[in-house]
């Protein structure tokens, strides 16, 4: 679809924080968002609005009633519909200048490399620990950095993993099958925490794409909203 709005007008509120050159870098960038639930749906919206020009959106899931408490893209009439389709429609609705490839399929070892190759960045918005290890392996093979977020209740964490980094092993230990789920099975997930952690992920995405600011590489930002704890920990 042709750009309906003049770029200068669309991004005018960006330009006192981002330079025109930086906005152009974002416009040329390709970001793959893996998982389009509480985190991924919000990251999609934020990156589209900020002006990331090419988004690959991947999730094989459909919306369920239990998603409505937190997943920005879920709407009552979309229960039973693919999350990837809703994400694509949302991006087109808020920024039709963004090129979107939506994949209504679960990302796994057999397809991840092909889906993400050629991206500048991958965003890990998955909901199991073992699938995160699979994603890191594929991204490392493809030479692409990963911005990862995870949530449980009103707590969450964000980190950035470059291809040569140890990554999730520093956070979860050696990959083990019994690690598939974290404590989110006991806590559930609350909307404002999902959106908060997604916002931090979006911020890391821009920093990596623009090579600007302090990036959470080999660091883990941990937030707990009951106690208002926000800490950046050194993983090595």
């Amino acid at each position: 679809m042709a750009e309906q709005f003049v770029k200068e007008d669309r991004y005018i509120r960006n330009f006192k924080t981002l330079s025109h050159d930086e906005q152009n870098i974002l416009e040329k960038a390709t970001v793959s968002i893996i998982g389009l639930g509480g985190l991924g749906g919000t990251v999609t919206e934020m990156l589209a609005r900020t002006g990331v020009g090419n988004l690959r959106l991947v999730d094989g899931d459909i919306f369920e009633t239990s998603n409505l408490n937190r997943q920005l893209l879920s709407e009552e009439h979309l229960i039973g519909s693919p999350k990837a389709d809703a994400a694509k429609k949302r991006v087109i609705a808020v920024n039709s200048s963004v090129h979107v490839d939506a994949h209504h399929k679960y990302a796994d070892e057999s397809n991840l490399f092909d889906i993400i190759k050629g991206s500048d960045l991958v965003v890990d918005c998955l909901d199991t620990i073992d699938s995160r290890f699979v994603l890191q392996k594929s991204a490392s093979k493809a030479g692409i950095p990963v911005v990862s977020g995870a949530i449980a209740g009103v707590s969450g964490q964000v980190t950035v993993i470059f291809p040569e980094d140890q990554g999730f092993e520093l956070i979860y230990g050696k990959k083990a099958i019994e690690q598939s789920r974290g404590v989110e099975t006991q806590t559930g997930n609350i909307s404002y925490c999902a959106l908060f952690i997604a916002a931090l992920q979006s911020s890391e995405c821009l920093k990596v794409l623009l090579n600007r600011g302090d990036i959470l590489r080999n660091k883990l930002l941990i937030a707990d909203l009951w106690s208002n704890s926000f800490e950046v920990m050194d993983l090595i």
Partner: peptide
């Protein structure tokens, strides 16, 4: 000292 359980939700 901070102790943290595994967190993996999305």
């Amino acid at each position: 000292v901070g102790l943290f359980p595994p967190v993996g939700g999305g």
